[in-house]
Simulated assay, not measured.
Amino acid sequence: MTARTILITGAAMGIGRAVAELHAARGHRLVLMDVNADALEAAARELGDNVAASAGSVASLEDCDRAVSMAVDRFGGLDGVSHNAGIQRYGDVVQTSLALWNEVLDVNLTGAFLVAKAAMPALRKSRGALVLTASIQGMAAQPGALAYVAAKHGLLGLVNGMAMDEARHGVRVNGVAPGSVDTPMLRDAIALDPNPAALNRAVDEMHPLGRRARPEEVASVIAFLLSEEASFMTGETVRVDGGVLSRIGGAPQTEESGA
Rank of each mutant, 00 (worst) to 15 (best):
4 R>P: 06
6 I>G: 01
13 M>P: 04
13 M>K: 14
14 G>D: 07
17 R>D: 10
24 A>M: 15
31 V>W: 02
31 V>R: 03
34 D>H: 03
35 V>S: 13
40 L>N: 08
41 E>Y: 13
42 A>C: 03
50 N>C: 05
52 A>T: 10
55 A>M: 06
58 V>C: 06
61 L>M: 06
61 L>F: 10
64 C>G: 03
65 D>G: 06
66 R>G: 04
67 A>N: 09
69 S>R: 11
72 V>W: 03
74 R>P: 09
75 F>Q: 10
75 F>G: 11
79 D>R: 11
80 G>D: 11
83 H>Y: 01
84 N>W: 01
90 Y>C: 08
92 D>H: 03
94 V>R: 15
95 Q>Y: 04
96 T>N: 01
96 T>M: 05
99 A>N: 10
100 L>A: 15
105 L>P: 04
106 D>S: 14
111 G>S: 12
116 A>C: 09
116 A>E: 06
122 A>E: 15
126 S>Q: 02
127 R>D: 00
128 G>R: 03
128 G>N: 01
129 A>I: 05
133 T>I: 11
135 S>Q: 07
136 I>F: 04
138 G>C: 12
140 A>S: 13
140 A>R: 13
143 P>M: 10
143 P>N: 10
148 Y>V: 09
150 A>F: 09
151 A>T: 08
152 K>P: 04
153 H>F: 04
155 L>A: 04
158 L>F: 11
159 V>C: 01
160 N>D: 12
161 G>N: 14
167 A>I: 04
171 V>L: 02
176 V>F: 02
178 P>K: 07
180 S>N: 13
182 D>Q: 12
190 I>A: 03
190 I>Y: 01
194 P>S: 02
195 N>E: 14
195 N>D: 15
197 A>E: 15
198 A>W: 06
199 L>I: 09
200 N>W: 12
202 A>R: 10
202 A>Y: 06
206 M>D: 08
207 H>M: 10
209 L>P: 07
214 R>G: 05
220 S>V: 13
221 V>E: 08
221 V>K: 01
225 L>I: 03
231 S>R: 15
233 M>T: 15
235 G>K: 01
235 G>M: 02
241 D>C: 06
242 G>P: 00
242 G>H: 00
242 G>M: 02
242 G>T: 02
245 L>E: 00
250 G>T: 01
259 A>R: 14
